[in-house]
């Protein structure tokens, strides 16, 4: 029954793409928030995600989350709890380091301080990677849960046992949590006073200052929140993916591609950008060799940048 087989392959790829894409989407949202508000290209975002993965891992194994919530709920509680410590860590990083090369004080500099920002975030990335190797070691770890090797089985939808779709439980729950966190962030940005100050600081920092908004504080909140959200995404990934201190390198390119695809400055766009990356990555294997799945991402990425440089949801003009 080759037709049913083909249909099963397509649905399975679609399912994998959606589940992986939702997680990529949340990673991209964190980076998109930082870029959207601060206009800072944060090369250390993947490494902050790595810190989130380790935070979730130690919360789960050593700090009692597994004992309290068990191997089913524990991984997701640990992932969410990884957000606040990384929020505080990022707050401190901004306060002590990043604030010196961002914000209003560098607008008059050549390239609006981007060169210093690139160097600083790259330096932070290297420190986190190598410091992580020194402190945490090179042994790959992951949050173990029975959910990562079990699935919700849908089907068989046809006779003779054909057309069964396996939806991985760990990935499905991670995807749901990702969507919930992304929606929560959007509500926060659109409905709260603090969220509005972030938008004001993003749209026109000068005008925001005139309106009495503390732009530097808004940047600090955006940076810490962006890192915290990516840390939660990392915590969610930690149950299906063994990681070492170098794991961030594997994801930072995906994050940037997602943010650019979605449209720089758009938080919702960043989520959909990540989702599209996940879908391309998985669906491309239906027609291309698996070795080329990441190549396919960048071919589509280049096409979109060529045809729609502002991304799916980006603004086509420079901000005022």
């Amino acid at each position: 029954m080759p037709m049913a087989q083909l249909l099963e392959d397509v649905l399975q790829a679609l399912n994998a793409g959606l589940l992986v894409g939702a997680l990529y989407g949340l990673m991209c949202v964190g980076l998109g928030l930082i870029f959207g508000v601060m206009r800072v290209i944060n090369f250390a975002q993947g490494d902050f995600m790595m810190c989130g993965m380790y935070a979730a891992f130690y919360l789960f194994t050593a700090l009692g989350v597994q004992a309290a919530f068990g191997p089913y709920g524990g991984p997701y509680i640990a992932a969410i709890l990884a957000g606040p410590p990384l929020f505080l860590f990022a707050w401190a990083v901004h306060r002590l380091l990043l604030s010196r090369v961002t914000g209003m004080r560098v607008t008059a500099l050549e390239g609006e301080g981007h060169y210093a920002q690139l160097l600083l975030t790259l330096g932070i990335a290297l420190i986190l990677q190598n410091g992580g190797l020194f402190v945490l070691g090179s042994v790959p770890v992951s949050i173990r849960t029975p959910l990562s090797s079990s699935a919700f089985e849908i089907g068989p939808l046809l006779e003779d046992g054909y057309l069964t779709i396996f939806v991985n439980k760990a990935r499905a729950i991670a995807a749901l949590v990702s969507v919930a966190v992304a929606i929560g962030l959007l509500l926060f940005i659109n409905r709260t006073r603090l969220g509005k100050t972030l938008r004001a600081a993003a749209d026109n920092p000068q005008a925001a200052i005139y309106m009495g908004i503390d732009v530097e504080r808004a940047h600090r909140v955006a940076f810490a929140l962006g890192v915290g959200i990516t840390a939660i995404a990392g915590g969610l990934l930690a149950s299906s993916y063994p990681f070492t201190p170098y794991v961030g390198l594997e994801y930072v390119i995906v994050m940037y591609a997602g943010v650019v695809l979605g449209g720089m400055g758009s938080i919702g766009g960043a989520f959909w950008g990540g989702m599209v990356i996940g879908l391309i990555q998985q669906l491309s294997t239906l027609v291309l060799p698996t070795q080329l799945q990441n190549t396919a991402i960048f071919v589509v990425f280049l096409l979109i940048v060529l045809l729609r440089p502002q991304g799916f949801f980006g603004r086509s003009v420079e901000r005022t």
């Binding site: 399975q12 396996f166 990935r171 294997t285 239906l286 698996t290 799945q293």
Partner: peptide, 13 residues
């Protein structure tokens, strides 16, 4: 099937 490590997901394989 040949893949490039590291995989992000093994569903299709």
């Amino acid at each position: 099937e040949t893949f490039t490590p590291p995989l992000s997901d093994a569903t299709q394989l």
